[in-house]
Amino acid sequence: MKMKVVVAMSGGVDSSVAAALLREQGYEVIGVTMRLQPSDCSEGCYSRDVAADAKKIAQKLDIPHQVFDFTDVFARDVITDFCREYSLGRTPNPCIRCNHYIKFGALLKQAQELGVNMVATGHYARIEKENGSGRYLLKKGADHLKDQSYMLCMLTQEQLGHSLFTVGDLTKEEVRHTAERLGLPISDKAESHEICFIPNNDYPKFLVEYTGITALPGPIIDRRGNVIGEHRGIASYTIGQRKGLGIASREPLYVTAIDPEKNTITVGGKSEVYATELIASDLNWISIERLDSPINVKARIRYRHREAAATVTPAGTGEAMVEFREPQMAITPGQAVVFYDGDIVLGGGLIARTGREVLS
């Protein structure tokens, strides 16, 4: 009997090639498009075009295609959290939560209810099972330029054990060539780099419309507390931001701190954006069961950030201190910090505090 697998299909080249390769490998493939927003939405993760494109690919591959409605759980676990984090002065990464709660959470659960125990996506990452420990290892994709292991840092052992990353051993160029070889009509389809549920990538407008809460202007201050400008609402700013401050200065100014309680934005020179320490919370260890003593790692503080040498030390229940050998620019609360040993993802967590806040 063929092993069944649900493939999350967006109509894009990566998920389409993943489905095609699994079918070639002998799996019984079921294509699924996830409805994450109202069906009348014209943009984003779910739209009529996305579903139609995925269905067209499924027909080309001669596999069944279904639409699973995760509108409510997506709103609860991803969008609501996104809005809450911005209200607290943090900058979240909703794609990481979507992977944990939706693609490898709700989708896997519904697949299992249908008797299917595996979920596949078009992520550029790899999974291996370690012989000695029996743990599932998450590794970078073979194409390091497209690697998405950072976005998968919160996946659990249970989730990894039921997941397939079919294109993880391929480069993007090889994926496009495979699409051409198979005659899939998406080999030159453009990629999206914006957050799927935010039209035109306009965060402030989305937050106001979704929450109904009007942005509250407030003071922009320097590190001494002097008021030097006015901000448009803290959700319009992130740590390290330089553009859009509306302040005349002899040197470029950057956002160095956001205080939601005082409704202030602090700015300073470029040197003030750098820090060497952070506290990570909500830790998820993958290659190890837990962290009992300090370890040396390469750490990444943003998706496209270059990894940097650091030491990670346990710092109380569910937290760890991360100390970088060299100062890092714009360590941003709310973003994920992911720890690597070569290609292996050791684990990750959320940046809770940084710089001077670590010592307070």
Rank of each mutant, 00 (worst) to 15 (best):
G229F: 01
D282T: 14
Y303V: 10
V78Q: 04
E28L: 11
K2D: 11
A8W: 03
D72Q: 14
K140I: 00
I221F: 03
V6M: 06
V7C: 08
S87P: 01
Y27R: 01
R300C: 09
S15I: 06
L88D: 13
I102K: 02
Y303I: 10
R84T: 11
L170Y: 12
T317H: 13
S87H: 13
D49E: 15
R353V: 02
F70N: 06
E251P: 02
S271E: 15
P260D: 08
E194V: 13
V5H: 04
V32F: 02
L36Q: 08
L350F: 09
I79E: 08
P204D: 07
R356D: 15
I258M: 03
F82R: 04
V227I: 14
N284V: 13
E180L: 13
D77H: 11
C153E: 00
G122K: 01
I234H: 02
A320E: 06
I286E: 07
K140T: 07
D343L: 04
M321H: 13
V267N: 02
A106R: 09
G161W: 04
P333L: 04
L155I: 04
T211D: 07
Y340R: 06
L107P: 04
G342F: 07
M329N: 09
G349V: 05
A309H: 12
Y124S: 03
K298Q: 12
G316N: 07
F82M: 06
Y203A: 07
R242D: 08
Y237N: 04
G334K: 01
V267L: 05
N263H: 13
L245M: 12
F82L: 06
L36N: 05
P252Q: 09
V175M: 01
S360Y: 11
Q66P: 00
S187W: 11
A309P: 07
P327L: 08
D282S: 15
K103C: 05
F206C: 05
L108N: 00
V227S: 10
A19Q: 03
I213S: 13
E158Q: 12
G132L: 14
K103E: 04
R84C: 03
E43W: 13
R35A: 09
V255R: 00
D72E: 15
T214D: 13
A51Q: 11
A315G: 02
R250E: 14
I344C: 11
C196F: 15
N117E: 14
M9T: 01
I247S: 03
I301L: 07
L207E: 08
K146E: 14
I286Q: 05
S10F: 02
L88E: 15
A330C: 05
T33E: 00
I213L: 15
Y254E: 06
Q112D: 08
Q335R: 09
T313A: 07
G240P: 02
